[in-house]
């Protein structure tokens, strides 16, 4: 055994002359020059620039909605549009306060949010599992992909009669419809992304003894994380879409029911209220997922 390099657990690694081994490897001196500075994670987006400041982003994003509100107020106050077609923002606000006082608004929002959450989580979980299966296994791809592709082609509303027949007009039928809506974006993006994971990385993982679930956890899932996250955001949007479809047709509670009920009773203010609430809830939930997405990507990408 030669002894000119001593790698020990405690002392410094030294070369033949007893100098630290680093001196043998002048790469370290080069590091400052050719290594990207840590922290500059997203070049071209971060750093300076008027449009990338946080204040500008928040105020800028609120600008058009506020303008829209002002225009809405102006056309209704000026008598340009009759109130039975477009009520004033103030009367929509009053409708909200009225429903709140009756305790109905809370119920509608709560039940809709609950349905979206349960449906989204269920559909996304099944999508993640089946997407992983189809993306990783050629057999699953051959057996499952065509069927799922065909199921995906069925428009959402076509499921409603069957779901009502099988699951009755209860929570199950609505949540199932929402889960179907949330399933496909996750399934599709995960399966496609897994097929395109760098085979070199996968082989390196295998070479170091990783197999099956451990290989999936260590190499493949982190590699497809950005796709999975954008799939999840799409799925959430789909969940809200399918929620309204489900509630419009058969329900006694929820924002979709509020829409339908208000149409029948001619309460345009409540219709507008439901639409505004759907917009706000959808944007809010998307922003929450986006926050989680940013935190995860900072850690993994």
């Amino acid at each position: 055994m030669t002894d000119h390099v001593a790698g020990t657990g405690t002392g410094p690694v030294t070369d033949r002359a007893g100098r630290p081994l680093r001196a043998l490897n002048p790469f370290d001196a080069m590091r400052g020059a050719d290594a990207a500075p840590a922290g500059a994670a997203a070049p071209g987006r971060a750093r300076g620039g008027f449009w990338s400041r946080r204040v500008v982003r928040v105020v800028g994003g609120a600008l058009l909605p506020l303008l829209l509100l002002a225009v809405w107020h102006a056309v209704t106050a000026g008598g340009l549009v009759p109130p039975y077609q477009l009520p004033a923002p103030a009367s929509v606000w009053d409708a909200a306060l009225d429903l709140l006082a009756r305790g109905q608004l809370q119920t509608h929002v709560a039940i809709s949010v609950q349905r979206v959450l349960i449906g989204f989580v269920t559909g996304a979980a099944v999508g993640l599992v089946l997407g992983s299966l189809v993306g990783l296994s050629r057999a699953a791809d051959v057996l499952l992909a065509p069927l799922l592709g065909a199921v995906r082609a069925v428009p959402s509303l076509a499921w409603v009669p069957l779901l009502i027949l099988w699951l009755k007009i209860g929570e199950e039928s609505k949540v199932t419809l929402i889960a179907i809506g949330a399933f496909f974006p996750v399934y599709t993006t995960v399966a496609a992304a897994l097929r395109h994971v760098d085979p070199h990385l996968v082989e390196a993982g295998r070479a170091f003894g990783l197999r099956g679930v451990r290989l999936l956890q260590t190499v493949q899932l982190p590699a497809v994380l950005p796709s999975v996250l954008s799939g999840l955001r799409l799925a959430l949007a789909q969940a809200w879409l399918f929620l309204v479809a489900a509630e419009l047709i058969a329900s006694s509670m929820g924002l979709g029911f509020l829409l339908n009920d208000s149409q029948n009773s001619g309460r345009v203010d409540r219709i507008l209220l439901a639409i505004v609430l759907l917009a706000l809830l959808g944007k809010l939930s998307d922003s929450l997922v986006a926050l989680g997405e940013r935190a995860l990507l900072r850690r993994y990408a």
């Binding site: 790698g7 690694v13 680093r22 490897n25 790469f27 370290d28 290594a35």
Partner: peptide
């Protein structure tokens, strides 16, 4: 041993 003692916490894209 490979002279990366001070680069342990860097990501691959940050090194040569």
């Amino acid at each position: 041993l490979v002279g990366l003692g001070e680069s342990a916490d860097l990501r691959p894209r940050q090194v040569s």
